[in-house]
Nucleic acid binder design. Structure first.
Lengths: 222, 222
DNA sequence: GCGTTCATCTAACTAATATTAGGTTTGTCA
DNA sequence: TGACAAACCTAATATTAGTTAGATGAACGC
């Protein structure tokens, strides 16, 4: 039986396999990516993968863990670099930028995680859930801290904000194609999303247009 | 060879198969759901499915098409019912509510579509793309109309707003479990998301907290 | 020079899957 | 009563996937 050693220090080949697996998982999904696909991308034969990994599940587990580690690290590092006294709005915008950067720019691991997490065998999902939860806890704390500083409207459901904000970002994996030239830069996306979530899109300074004023006047009368 | 007729009018069995397929696709994904799973859920044998459908791809195609038809219909009907002169904010909130309702409450077809669309064979995806694009065009028009009425802040990237808003909603399939009692009602989610996107979460009336004022003062000096 | 370990290979195996061929039951209608 | 079709069945097939066994060759210390 192949011993399949599990070196904590990644050999070049192991790293190559994970890189290619992450790229393929992100692009085509988990079940749709065969070990043959991964091996081909690495220039080797399917069976050779088993020298570095004990199973496909071990590969995907490593990819998923690296994926969340990447975002978590990117987000925490960038926000922490702002210093403790930074404005709440700046902290949130920085966190948004970091999450999107990890997801769309840095590598394929985070994108793969977001894309296939819900399509992976249950025990694999369970094994990688803890780290994912810790990252979400970090967001929970970030928002709670922002609220504690009085920067968020009272009565706001912070859990819903977190879920929706992360959802809006995570879904970008589905439509963002960096292949198309420089379509939209990640920084621009982050700014736009920040504007939307933090400030809202409605123009509350402008008077309601004519049609509405007419309608409201009618409503008052009848 | 089995002729596998394709009745436009769905027989009860055909309907049952699609219902169960939608439920399973939504819950476990496309590749992770075998024809055996579907047949078992319907109380029949795998081969019997071929009396109603020519292939697994035909089943998933039907599920995907029904899914987008469901949201599209729900969204358009509810918004149209508001009348042409309705306030832009009400139209957007209604659209958000309808999308979420189709996705999380009405049936499993829309949820299945959102969940597996990116994991389905390319030609199946291509075959169901047109209807999906039409629905997204409807949102594009809705937002453009809102902006044309002057209700949206000038300079807002409407494409980004559409992608992020739909993303936030679509991602809810990943976390919303209606199994857990009445965890959060869809109406509450819709209201919370509407508040966030339309009005923003930042409290722009309140003065910045002490820490920030101190920091800004320091920044002015040094 | 020689044995050992690393990294990969060829070849085979097993289980599962979508699909097909053809039979059986059941109800309807002439 | 008997033809017929609808709706399902049993049984078999082809393909593919993940996985395993064992061989090959290069690199390297002794």
């Amino acid at each position: 039986m192949n011993a399949a050693p599990q070196p904590a220090l990644p050999s070049p080949s192991r790293r190559l396999v994970l890189d290619q697996a992450a790229r393929l998982f992100r692009g085509q999904g988990y079940a749709e990516t065969s070990l043959r696909d991964i091996a081909d991308a690495c220039g080797m034969k399917t069976a050779s993968l088993y020298y570095h990994f004990a199973s496909k599940e071990e590969i995907v587990t490593a990819v998923l863990n690296t994926g969340v580690a990447t975002v978590y690290d990117e987000a925490r590092r960038n926000v922490d670099a702002l210093g403790a006294g930074a404005a709440p709005e700046a902290r949130l915008r920085t966190a948004i930028g970091a999450h999107l950067r990890a997801l769309l720019e840095l590598d394929d691991y985070t994108g793969a995680n977001i894309r296939i997490f819900g399509h992976v065998p249950p025990h694999v999902r369970a094994a990688t859930m803890a780290e994912r939860d810790r990252y979400e806890d970090w967001w929970r704390d970030l928002l709670a801290d922002t609220a504690a500083r009085g920067a968020i409207k009272p009565g706001t459901d912070l859990r819903l904000v977190r879920l929706m904000l992360l959802g809006a970002m995570n879904w970008s994996v589905e439509w963002h194609r960096l292949r198309r030239g420089k379509a939209d830069s990640v920084a621009a996306i982050a700014r736009g999303l920040g504007d939307m979530v933090l400030l809202g899109i409605l123009d509350q300074t402008a008077p309601p247009p004519v049609a509405d004023r007419v309608r409201r006047a009618a409503a008052r009368k009848g």
